[in-house]
């Protein structure tokens, strides 16, 4: 990766990140640095570890090795600058709650233990819903929303966090055309405010159009850089042409034997 020469630390830098599920390696030695004010796609085949990478970055799944820095600091210091949008499928959409209450959850990082959202929090949530054309649905039960509307509620919730870095897990999955347009519009607005967006993305047809930057992964980092540079046939082949079985097998073997702990000249 190129060194960031600017004085400001990058919104996100990942160094030598490795993750595993039991002894199976999911990600091995992934490093990259994200520039500010860009939209970035994480692309790779099914099971490549895209969502795992995002969860590892957000500290939702334990990592094996490696470090993640947000604006040069640890996540705990930069929580308020970072918003995460989980996959829609992770939620029970039958949960008895209204749209506005879901969006207000985005304010809870700013609230004390028992505090309830204040008038200002309500204003912020209102603006977030309006930005995604969901204000008319504020009193709807979430179970009555379509897939695209659910996604927009999740994005509004992240927007209400007023963060500088947004990490989204497949926001375009299974949404209607109107929502897709709304998301693209949102990305533009966020970028003009200098905010950074990182998305797990699965649609190769749109990745070049929707994103400035692409990170190709398949259990390891294949390439990362500006879309026009890295969106090449070679990188696509490397990413989608199957896993490197030798790399996987030997890494698994290493985890099983706990070799990484036995080796002291690390």
């Amino acid at each position: 990766m190129t060194k960031n020469s600017r004085s400001l630390p990058p919104p996100l830098s990942v160094e030598h990140l490795s993750m595993r599920y039991h002894h199976k390696p999911v990600l091995t030695d992934v490093s990259f640095t994200i520039p500010e004010g860009k939209s970035i796609a994480i692309v790779g085949p099914n099971g490549a570890g895209k969502s795992t990478l995002l969860k590892g970055i957000m500290g939702l799944i334990p990592t094996m090795e490696g470090e993640v820095h947000f604006f040069g600091e640890s996540l705990t210091k930069k929580r308020l600058s970072t918003a995460y949008v989980p996959q829609r499928e992770e939620i029970d959409w039958d949960f008895p709650i209204k749209v506005l209450d879901v969006v207000l959850m985005g304010r809870h990082g700013h609230l004390k233990l028992w505090q309830r959202p204040s008038a200002i929090d309500y204003q912020i949530a209102e603006q977030a819903l309006k930005d995604l054309q969901m204000w008319d649905f504020k009193d709807r039960q979430i179970s009555q929303l379509s897939g695209g509307q659910q996604q927009r509620v999740f994005l509004a919730r992240a927007l209400a966090q007023q963060a500088n870095l947004y990490l989204m897990d497949e926001p375009f999955a299974g949404v209607d055309v109107a929502t897709e347009k709304a998301i693209i519009e949102l990305f533009k607005n966020l970028k003009t405010q200098g905010k950074t967006i990182i998305c797990v993305h699965h649609d190769l047809n749109t990745v070049g159009e929707y994103f400035d930057w692409i990170i190709f992964i398949n259990a390891r980092l294949v390439a990362a850089g500006p879309a026009e540079e890295v969106l090449t046939k070679d990188n696509l082949n490397k990413t989608y042409g199957g896993r490197l079985s030798l790399l996987n097998d030997l890494t698994e073997e290493m985890y099983r034997t706990k070799l990484n702990q036995a080796h002291d000249t690390d």
Binding site: K55, M58, G59, L60, T76, R79, L80, G106, H108, G109
Partner: peptide, 8 residues
């Protein structure tokens, strides 16, 4: 999981 990312 989301609550966790908020720092709650």
């Amino acid at each position: 999981g989301y609550a966790q990312t908020l720092g709650v």
